[in-house]
């Protein structure tokens, strides 16, 4: 999967939970889920569960710890996919 494909998939996953349209339109690797997209932190759990479902991976709570940005989510997905 290319970087662009991965970003597109993550963008689709976060869409239902975002509360800042402008930041969502400009979503990039550097976008922060909470500070930029204003996703409420309970919904961050939904994002993580959706990522698990979409990529058929398991994200342990220790991996989840840093998953607060698009870049961090991409790193974790890539790492998990490489390990399967």
């Amino acid at each position: 999967m290319t970087k662009e494909e991965l970003i597109t998939k993550l963008k689709t996953i976060v869409q239902p939970y975002i509360q800042d349209e402008e930041a969502f339109k400009n979503l990039s690797e550097n976008t922060d889920f909470i500070n930029d997209l204003k996703i409420n932190s309970a919904n961050l759990v939904d994002v993580i569960l959706d990522v698990e479902d979409e990529f058929d991976i398991r994200i342990e709570n220790d991996d989840m710890e840093k998953m607060t940005s698009v870049k961090a989510a991409m790193d974790i997905v890539n790492e998990k996919l490489a390990a399967t």
Binding site: N40, A42, N43, V45, D46, I48, L49, E52, N61, M64
Partner: peptide, 17 residues
């Protein structure tokens, strides 16, 4: 609002929190 925003009965949800 919490009922609208989140379904805490979703599989795996409580275990993550």
């Amino acid at each position: 609002q919490a009922r609208i925003d989140s379904n805490w009965k979703r599989k795996g949800f409580l275990e993550k929190i």
